[in-house]
Each structure stands twice: as structure tokens, then as C-alpha cells.
């Protein structure tokens, strides 16, 4: 079936999923830093984080990806040449994940900021007043509750990020989309192969919605009990 190209496409799925998962991790780091900066007392940090989220969210993903990919390459080589290290070729996987992570970090900044703000101030004060250290408050009070508040927005961003991974083929990653274009060229059946890729994306989306929905249901059980009582 599919002229024997299905295993090749599925191999590309591994690349697509790795890009998606690693980008999500990078985006969470940028998002957490952005949220902390936005809520900090320092006006400089707030301005930097504000510019980051505003500019990134005002530009198309594809444009940002090309800017960071080509721009990063030029910047890196200017530095290495100045140091006399010679030419460095940017690894496409790293470029893709850092770019997607940087872009979606801006969206996650807003999600995380909202989640931190949703925790009642009194809980943090109470934890401090019984003598917990800053680290303990963060670990035992802020983060567990933040996760629950952030989960719906996090799910949404994951679904958008997942679909954005289709763009990494444009900067030369050998993902599912790229494999589909190779198979299309060889067999002259682009409809078949792009439909397969579409179906795989739809399947991952469905699994994500069901899985994260179940997790959300579990995490908010204390809230439901309150509502019933």
C-alpha cells in the first residue's frame, strides 16, 4: 500500500513529534521566564517581557521562523568568525525547536501569568506567615495550583504548536511534511500523501484533546467537590 512509502512517512512522524515535544519544553522555559518577568517589580524586566510578547504575537509564525533561522545563522557566524573559529552550520533541528520554542514562549507567558495571578494572594501570605521559605512557597503552594490554572491554556497552545510544526519543513527539517513531498514527487500522488499527513495530525490532536481533557478533569476535582458541597 502507498507504494511502500508509509514507513518513510511514519519515520518522519518521529521527527515531527520530537520537534513538537522539545519545542514545548523550550516554550515552557521561555514562558515561565516571561511570566516571572512580567510580574516582577523591575520596570526593565517588565518592559523586556512586554516587548517580547507583543512583537512575537503580532507577526506570522513563518516569518519569525525564517528570521530566527537565517538571522541566527548570520549572527552565530559573525561571532565565530570574530573569534576565529571558522564556519558553523546551524543544525536544522536545533534551529526549528529554538524558533518554535521562542515563538510559543510568548503565548505561554500570558497563560502562565494568568495562572499565577489566579492564585489567591492570601494563600501565599498564609504560607509565608507559618514560616515557609520562598522556595517552599513556590514548590508547595504556587506551582501545584498554577499547573491547574494553566492547563486549559497550555492545552490550547500545545494544539497550535503541534500544527505549527508543519512549518519546520520550510527551514529544511526532514519531518513528516518533507517526507510527504518526497513521496509525492516520486509517485505523482501528492493528494494521497498529504491526506495521510493530515490524518496523522488529526489523530495526534484528538489524542491530545482526550488526554489533556482527562488530566484537567482530574486536576480540578477539588473544585468540583466545592461546587457540589
Amino acid at each position: 500500500m502507498f507504494h511502500g512509502y508509509l514507513p518513510m512517512i511514519l519515520d518522519g512522524l518521529r521527527v515531527t513529534l520530537s520537534v513538537a515535544v522539545v519545542s514545548l519544553a523550550v516554550a515552557s522555559v521561555f514562558g515561565m521566564m516571561g511570566a516571572v518577568a512580567k510580574l516582577s517589580a523591575s520596570p526593565v524586566l517588565r518592559a523586556v517581557a512586554g516587548t517580547y510578547t507583543t512583537v512575537i504575537r503580532a507577526l506570522p509564525d513563518l516569518l519569525l521562523m525564517l528570521v530566527i533561522f537565517y538571522g541566527g545563522q548570520i549572527l552565530l557566524n559573525t561571532i565565530t568568525q570574530a573569534q576565529g573559529w571558522g564556519y558553523v552550520d546551524v543544525n536544522a533541528f536545533m534551529a526549528g525547536t529554538i524558533t518554535l520554542g521562542f515563538v510559543f514562549g510568548a503565548y505561554l507567558t500570558e497563560t502562565f501569568r494568568g495562572a499565577i495571578l489566579a492564585i489567591p494572594r492570601g494563600q501565599i501570605e498564609a504560607a509565608q506567615s507559618i514560616g515557609l521559605s520562598r522556595g517552599q512557597v513556590l514548590r508547595n503552594v504556587t506551582i501545584p495550583q498554577m499547573v491547574r490554572h494553566a492547563l486549559p491554556g497550555f492545552t490550547n497552545n500545545w494544539l497550535v504548536l503541534l500544527k505549527a510544526t508543519a512549518l519546520v519543513s520550510i527551514i529544511g527539517l526532514d519531518d513528516m511534511m518533507h517526507r510527504a513531498s518526497l513521496a509525492s514527487a516520486a509517485t505523482r500522488e501528492p493528494f494521497t500523501f498529504y491526506m495521510i499527513v493530515g490524518a496523522i495530525y488529526l489523530a495526534i490532536t484528538t489524542v491530545s484533546i482526550l488526554g489533556l481533557g482527562a488530566l484537567n478533569w482530574r486536576m480540578s476535582r477539588s473544585l468540583r467537590r466545592e461546587a457540589v458541597g
Partner: peptide, 22 residues
Amino acid sequence: YILRGTPLLVQLFIIYYGLPQL
């Protein structure tokens, strides 16, 4: 659900590159 669950780039390629196959 289908249109929101798949990348726009895939949809665009199915229409532009894919449909002429049929």
C-alpha cells in the same frame, strides 16, 4: 474539527498540489 485539527499548510498543499492528482 477536521479544519481546526490539521495544519493550514497541509490543507493548502492538499488543495494546490493534491487535488490535480484526481
